[in-house]
């Protein structure tokens, strides 16, 4: 017990030290920060770019999550249902429908089978053919909604239906479900790729900005080295700056993007794909990691850049 307790205490104190360091980095060390001259213009550019990148990142994140949600909803709803369509001459319709229901009810794995009433079928056709449809005069096929349960042998069921109900066509929706789900998961992949590109561009942009700041301060760096500053001390002055700027810029960009998503008009009834863009519930916490990631990216990009520059100074 004491061993585990000791370990936990160790981990906690290590975490405390790390958090302390991170906080110290953010708060800054007034004295150390002053050794690098302030730069107005490039600082604003870094802020702006970090903000713009964070804005885009939040949208890419929302896109990925929304397509993921849509894909899983479609596959879940559609996977569990199928439709049996019976196209037969008018005089055989009723007989075949009754036979089909009999077959379905006696098949293990079919949770339920229900014939759609004339009214329901009229409703389904109304958007295309108008409301005053004389259903009884039209050779409208009989539709049976099948809800699949566990252990349904679809191939066996199709074979039985083919033998006993010649006019029946069993449609488990896979023909149009699969391409939709494929498209959705491809879209989600694209969202993640966009996020990756945004992170890489942020790193590249901060490397460039830090590189130009380091080059502009070459004399300052040389002077600091001559009076005994370590590389870490000099690098930290730059790293702290760019980390703070990236964090602040990204925080503003993230807030604006979240606001924009929250204000997107909703059209829940049609369940449209685009209007589903956004976060749900605890998902709203997810974009908050964007500023953190921007700060971490800035930290490492500036650090690498600073140490590269410092190696050229004695």
């Amino acid at each position: 017990m004491s061993g585990i307790g000791g370990k936990v205490a160790g981990v906690l104190s290590a975490l405390k030290v790390r958090t302390g360091k991170a906080l110290a980095l953010l708060q800054g060390d007034g004295q150390a920060d002053r050794v690098v001259p302030p730069t107005g213009f490039t600082a604003n550019l870094t802020l702006f770019t970090a903000g713009a990148m964070a804005f885009l990142a939040v949208f890419a994140l929302a896109l990925s999550l929304a397509t993921g949600r849509v894909a899983s909803r479609w596959s879940e709803e559609l996977a569990r249902s199928a439709t049996l369509r019976i196209s037969a001459p008018m005089e055989q319709r009723e007989a075949q429908a009754a036979k089909a229901l009999e077959v379905l009810e006696s098949t293990p794995g079919v949770a339920s089978a229900r014939r759609l009433s004339d009214d329901e079928q009229r409703d389904l056709l109304a958007p295309w053919l108008g409301v005053d449809l004389p259903m009884e005069d039209l050779p409208v096929p009989v539709l049976i909604e099948v809800v699949e349960g566990e252990g349904l042998d679809v191939a066996g069921l199709k074979a039985r239906l083919a033998g006993e109900v010649p006019g029946a066509v069993y449609d488990d929706h896979s023909r149009w479900r699969e391409p939709l789900i494929r498209a959705a998961s491809r879209l989600r992949l694209l969202g993640w790729v966009a996020l990756g590109l945004i992170a890489a561009s942020t790193a590249a942009m901060i490397t460039l900005a830090a590189g130009s700041a380091l080059a502009a301060n070459a004399r300052v760096i040389a002077t600091l080295r001559l009076v005994g500053a370590t590389d870490t001390y000099i690098a930290r002055a730059f790293v702290r700056r760019f980390t703070q700027r990236a964090l602040l810029g990204a925080a503003v960009g993230t807030s604006l993007a979240m606001l924009a998503l929250a204000l997107l008009p909703r059209a829940e009834t049609t369940g449209g794909f685009l209007t589903g863009l956004g976060f749900t519930g605890a998902g709203w916490l997810l974009p908050l990691i964007v500023p953190m990631l921007a700060a971490i990216t800035a930290f490492w990009a500036t650090r690498a850049s600073a140490f590269r520059t410092l190696r050229q100074v004695t």
Binding site: R34, V35, P37, P38, R219, V220, A222, T223, L224, R225, L226, V227, G228, A229, T230, D231, T232, L310, T314
Partner: peptide, 25 residues
């Protein structure tokens, strides 16, 4: 190492011919 150089320089005061300062301080 570079850190040892930095530490050694804290024990050596240098007056350079072309004195380098941080002009913003």
């Amino acid at each position: 190492s570079r850190n040892e150089v930095a530490r050694a320089r804290r024990r050596i005061g240098v007056v350079h011919q072309d004195c380098h300062f941080l002009d913003h301080l």
